[in-house]
Every structure is written in C-alpha cells, then in structure tokens.
Design a protein around this nucleic acid. Structure first.
Lengths: 349, 349
DNA sequence: TTGTACGCGTTATCAG
DNA sequence: CTGATAACGCGTACAA
C-alpha cells in the first residue's frame, strides 16, 4: 500500500505539495501538478481514511439510526433510508447504518468516538428515547418526525396537523358530511408512531368543527377483514360519502375490489382519499388521490440541514421545520354523492 | 474533548498505560487501573475512532453495497440489509451503506482507503460488475448470489438449481403432471437477477425430465392482469393441477381472491407453491407453501465468513457456498386433483 | 511495570 | 509558488 510519502518521493516533491494538489487548497504550478498526478496513478495511491480525518476533524460519515422492529413496515422505511443514503452521498457523505437494540448507546458510541459527523433519526415515535437523549450525543442530530421531547435535536417532518385540517376542509368543500375513517394498522397507534396519531387527532377535531360526521373503522389488525368494512361501514346505515384511509395499499386494494364487485363507482358514488401514506412505494392497483408522505423531499431537506450544521457549525438544537402537505389528485376524490348509491343493492357477493 | 493524554496526566501515568488498561493486553496493577478508570470517568473520555484504527489496521466496519435502482423491490432488499446490519453488529462491526451510481469505484474508495474491513455485495446479478472487479478491492468481499464471474470474491446463496429440482420432484410425487408457472416481474429476468433465472431454468429442465408439462404465464409487467391469468391459464384448456409462483404477494393475493370467487379450493382443487420468494416480508392474505429465500440465514452465514476472513486473514476468494433450500408447508400444496374442478363452470365473474 | 517513538494525511506556519 | 516541519490521536513494538 503506497502512502503519500511514496508519491512525494516519486514525484520529487514534498508531502505537503502532494496533499495540496489533491485538495486544491493552494495554487500549484501545472508542471508540478502533472508530475504528482502521474505518480499517484502510477502507484495507485488512495489516501488512508484514518489519516485524512486526523486533522480535518471531519469523517464525511453520517449515521442513520433505525430501530429494529419485527413489525416494521419494511417497504415504507426502506424508502426513507435509501433516500437518506442517496442524498447524503450527493452531499459527499457516507452513511453508517445503526440498528442495534440499544440505539441510544450506539449513537453515543459513534458520535463520541468521532466516527460520524452527524446523526439522522428515522422512524421516530412520540416518546422517542433517542430524541430525548440527543443532548448526550457529541454531534448534531436531526429527526424525521416530531417527538414530544426535542430540545436537543432538530425535527423535520410534514405538518400532519395541517394535513388533518386540509383533508377535512377538502371533504367539506366537496359537500361531504359523513365520512368513514379507515384506520392504519393498530400496532402503529399503540407504538406511538407520531404522525399517524397527529393526523388522526387533527382530522377528527377539524371534522367536528366543520360538522362532518366521522365513522371509524374497527381496529385494523393482521386479520382485518376489509370486505366486511366495506359492507358494514361504507354501505351501512350511516352511508358515508367518502373513505379517508390511513391504511396501506394492500387493504385499499381489497376495498377497491369489493366496491368494484358491488358496482359502486369511485368517485361518482363514493370518494376515496388516502392520507399520510406513500403509495409510490407500494403497489396500489387503483389510482387514489393522496395527501402523501414525502420521503424524497424530507430526506433532501434533512441532509441539507444536517450538512449545513456540520460544515458551518450551526447549532440546530430545537429547530422544528414542518412542511406543507401536497395534495396529489389521482381522481378518486369528487363531489359528495347525494342520490342513492348505484348498485347499492347489488347482491353479487 | 479530552484525549488519552489528558487521562494520562490526570492519572499520573503514561499514555501507554491508559491504553493498556482499556485494552487489557497487558497486566496493570489494580491500583493503577483504578486511578486510570477514575480519570476516564471523570473526564468522560471516549477514544477517538481515527486514532484507534491507526495502528490496529481494523476499523470494525463492513461495507454493504446495494446498487440503487428505481425498480427495486424495496421490501425484499431491506430485509437483507437490515439482517446484514444486525448480524454484523452482533459480530462487533458497524455497517457502511454504499449506494452510489458507480458501485465499483465506491467500493474501491472505501476498501483502498482502509475505511472498511470487508464488503458484502447485495442484489447481485448474473453479470455483476462488482463481483467481476472484486480483485481490485483491497479487502475481502462476499456476494449474496452467484454471479458468473466470481474468482475474486466469495459467493453465498441458496442453491436455486436444487430448488428447481426439489420443486419439480415434490410436484411429481404428489401426482402433478401439468403445472402453471407464474413468472416474476419481467424486469427481474431482463436485468439478470441470478436466482430467478437459475430457478426457472432448473425447474423447466427437471420438469421436462420428469414429464411434467409446464404452462408459463405471459410476461408479468406492472399492468399484469392476474385475474385473466387465472381464467385463461389455470382454468384454460390445459387444466394444470398446480400453480408454481415466482411472483410477489400482491399478485398471489389476486390469484387467491379470483380462485376463491370461482369456488376453486386450495389445495383440494388446485395446489399452489411459491418458489424463491420471501412471504414473511410481504403481506400475503392467504397461507402459501413455500420454498423461500432466507435473508436471516444467509446474512448470518455471510457475516460469519466475512468476519472470519477479516480476523483470521483467511483467503475466501472463489469460495462458493450454496445452501439447501428449506420447504415450508403452509397447506397450499396437495395431491393433484383428478376429478373435474368444482365450481369450474361458475360464471360469477 | 512503564515510557518513548512511530505511523497515517492534512494544514498552519515559517522560510525560501 | 514551493518546501520543510510540527501537530493532531491512538495503539503497540521495543527499550528501559
């Protein structure tokens, strides 16, 4: 393994000259530059990472903390860390994946040991031990999410309170006064996945204010029967004119299938809107209008903020940035149906 | 940030003594040890990672190379890298995620710069540029997969040739002589995803040998109509007694739904077996017997091999380990139906 | 049992 | 514009 000294010797210059040629932090004559570059190629020289970070105090590594859980929706979270990794690379940073049981001590270890320059917290819950312990990390940290305790880290997320309001407003303006809320997997609420709770609370509150009646689905577990949900709730006595879904593409597919079999047209007879979901990462078989999550946009912003903090030593503790939700119209949300539902008495099933 | 020198000064010993107290590679008197430990705690000292790897030549970091692709099945691959990360941590290694466009130069950079001790190649294709360039990596590498060119890296995977043979044998023993093959997403074959091709080729070959007639589905693209597949192929003139699926849970769900609506019972009227899939990571709504992928088992073995190579300087270039497929009975595979299919003329759809 | 010196690459500083 | 040197932090071979 050739070192910088070997290069210097071969090019007949000093080590500092080689270093300056590589970094460009000093102007070096073209002739010298040529000789050095030639020596580097000839020897196949690559600087050793440990030496590089000795001086600069920067590793160009960002830690990504993702607590390992059996029940995690892998499809969804992988979108976040692939995006975060991609954006980090664009900014010139490698990504260290942390997934140990004890996330807090893991982050302490890599930040205090100067192994990483900063930390991204993924899959953040309302009561997140990592966010709460962020003051014990020796490097800046950013959470995707909005935990209760966040004095020592930055928080970046979609504004899910606004999302609940926008959704209720949109339904109201289209004339909907009775809507069904299709819940997400129960385990998410129980675990305290912040955004799902935030959206639901905000949505229910604003619906109450606007006079929209919300009929909630029963708790969605792994054995949830989406067909029965359609028959009992959607076609039930309360006759909602829209479904607001927090659920995943699999369940939504069954809902669409069931409605199709019953001859219920979307959106003429019934509107559907999906909120706080990310259908691009799943496989919906029917287009559904959405107030979606935004892994790409968020990760882009998160890395921006973190890198800025690292490189310009900006203090980002306590920073909170909630971005405006963006509605995507895919044609499943329309005016509230007033006439009796076509095919409503179709007994095919 | 206190350094080892500060600790040494406070404990009134030399830096080497502090180092040996931490590593335990020399016997130090209890009195000295106490003083040193006290100083360490008092200062909150954590060794700096860059210094640590200066001498030891070991970073305790493993690189995970995952080429970023738009069309990748995120749910599936995330299972591999979460597992790899988990197993690596168990062995005391951190994981650096590599996902740049040019994977080869990325790996060269981190291996030649001594940033990582070894490399795991994920999502390996038959003609994989990374495996082919493994001789230019300065550290040992292991591929999950079985690329054509693999002289310079180790390859660990399930034996998909055996998997094809076992599947055909199993079907044959249960009396099946006509089976439908439900292909995976076409893009996987086109891209050269090794295991899918290996299984398919082996399965077709062994079926031919055993006299099993295989009716293949049309190419599966994003617009694939699984209902039509059931109507045209499964209930078509050739009347296969089993479906062998390489497809995902979403498509399989539709197949089950369609069969259910038609009154075709599984496995009494029709058997279904899924091969080279990983249903635990997806959301199948019906239990399906499977000759599955095994992210956990493979990642465990891969990290074992790689860590052994790193720590004992074992040369693993060219090593190939193909593990025996394990059949999981979930009740969807049974004796070939001989009587005319119940509900076969049901015209509900 | 303890101290000293070395190695890695970058960069501030001083000297040409 | 370029060269020489020291310092940064740690582990460990070697000397004492």
């Amino acid at each position: 393994m050739p070192g910088i000294k070997d290069v210097a010797r071969l090019a007949d210059v000093s080590v500092s000259t080689v270093s300056y040629v590589l970094s460009g932090k000093r102007s070096i004559s073209a002739k010298t530059t040529d000789r050095v570059m030639q020596a580097i190629e000839q020897l196949g020289y690559t600087p050793d990472a440990s030496g590089q970070r000795l001086r600069g105090r920067r590793n160009h590594i960002i830690a990504l903390s993702e607590p390992i859980r059996k029940d995690m929706n892998q499809a969804q979270y992988s979108a976040y860390f692939m995006q975060a990794a991609f954006q980090a690379r664009k900014a010139g940073y490698d990504v260290l994946l942390l997934g140990a049981e004890d996330a807090v001590s893991d982050i302490q270890r890599v930040t205090r040991g100067n192994l990483v320059d900063g930390v991204v917290l993924l899959d953040v819950m309302e009561n997140d031990s990592r966010a709460a312990a962020a003051d014990t990390f020796a490097k800046p940290s950013v959470a995707i999410g909005y935990p209760h305790v966040h004095e020592a880290c930055a928080c970046i997320d979609i504004d899910f309170t606004a999302l609940g309001e926008i959704a209720s407003r949109k339904l109201y303006d289209l004339g909907h006064r009775r809507v069904a809320l299709l819940r997400s997997l129960e385990v998410n609420y129980q675990r305290g996945v912040g955004y799902m709770l935030l959206f639901r609370d905000s949505f229910l509150k604003h619906c109450a204010k606007l006079g929209i009646k919300v009929i909630e689905s029963e708790e969605v577990t792994i054995n949830f029967n989406a067909e029965r949900f359609v028959h009992e709730v959607v076609l039930g006595p309360e006759a909602p004119t829209a479904i607001v879904s927090q659920s995943n593409a699999d369940i939504l597919n069954i809902v669409f299938d069931t409605l199709g079999n019953l001859g219920v047209r979307v959106p003429q007879d019934l509107s559907i809107i999906s909120c706080g979901t990310y259908m691009q990462g799943e496989m919906p078989r029917y287009p559904v209008s959405e107030l979606p999550l935004d892994p790409e946009g968020l990760c882009c912003k998160i890395i921006d903020v973190l890198v800025d903090s690292i490189e310009n030593k900006r203090d980002i503790r306590g920073l909170v940035e909630l971005t405006e939700p963006q509605y995507i119209d895919r044609g499943s949300l329309g005016l509230a149906a007033s006439a009796p539902r076509k095919g409503g008495d179709n007994k095919r099933m």
